[in-house]
Amino acid sequence: MAGHKIYKMAFASVYPHYITKVEKKDRTKEEVDEIIRWLTGYSQNELETHLENKTDFENFFEEAPKMNLNRDLIKGVICGVRVEEIEEPLMQEIRYMDKMIDELAKGKKMEKILREV
């Protein structure tokens, strides 16, 4: 998994930007956390521990207890790339999270964001 500097970037350094992005659109930190927990299987305490420990993205996803099986239902474009076409598994996980946060900021209902069928 060489190459992308985001892999070694602390998840905690990006997390506040997710919060700021959604709060500008009257959404909440709690909703961001719910999305992250849904995607990764982390508990709230585990998520907060990773934030405190400044875990990098690579380890954040590698250590995720249970990646949600419905994450392949996440479709669309983020940063000019279709998430379902990203070939690198770690980059795809990162972009899935970005896409869900983007949907939250755009006002989508949580049921749709969390791909409840």
Rank of each mutant, 00 (worst) to 15 (best):
N53K: 15
T40Y: 00
C79Q: 14
T20A: 14
E87T: 12
I86K: 08
I74C: 08
D102G: 10
L51K: 09
L104V: 02
G76S: 10
R71V: 14
H50P: 02
I19H: 09
F11A: 08
I78E: 07
T28D: 00
L73S: 11
M67I: 15
E87C: 05
K106V: 01
E88I: 08
R95S: 12
T40L: 02
M110A: 06
E103K: 04
K21L: 15
K29F: 12
W38L: 07
V14T: 12
A2H: 12
K24I: 05
N45A: 15
N68T: 06
E52W: 06
E111P: 01
A2L: 13
I74K: 01
E103L: 10
I35P: 02
M9Y: 08
L114N: 00
C79P: 07
M91F: 09
F60D: 04
K8H: 13
L104S: 00
I86L: 11
D26Q: 14
L104Q: 00
A64F: 02
I19L: 13
K99S: 12
Y18L: 06
K75F: 10
V32N: 01
E63A: 11
K109C: 07
H50A: 08
I78R: 10
G107A: 01
F60W: 01
L104G: 08
K8R: 14
I101G: 01
L51F: 04
E30R: 09
E34P: 00
E30C: 04
R37H: 00
M97S: 05
N53F: 10
E31A: 08
T49W: 12
K29I: 13
V81W: 10
E88W: 01
L47M: 10
S43N: 01
I35Y: 00
F61V: 06
D33T: 03
N45P: 06
D56M: 03
K108T: 05
M100V: 03
V81I: 15
D98P: 00
A10N: 10
N68E: 11
K106E: 14
R27M: 11
R71S: 12
G3K: 08
L90I: 13
P89Y: 06
T55H: 03
K29H: 10
K99Y: 02
S13V: 10
E62Q: 08
I113C: 07
F57P: 02
E111L: 07
K66V: 06
T20M: 12
D56Q: 11
A64M: 03
G80P: 02
E46D: 15
A64P: 00
N68V: 05
N70A: 15
Y7A: 04
V14H: 12
R95F: 14
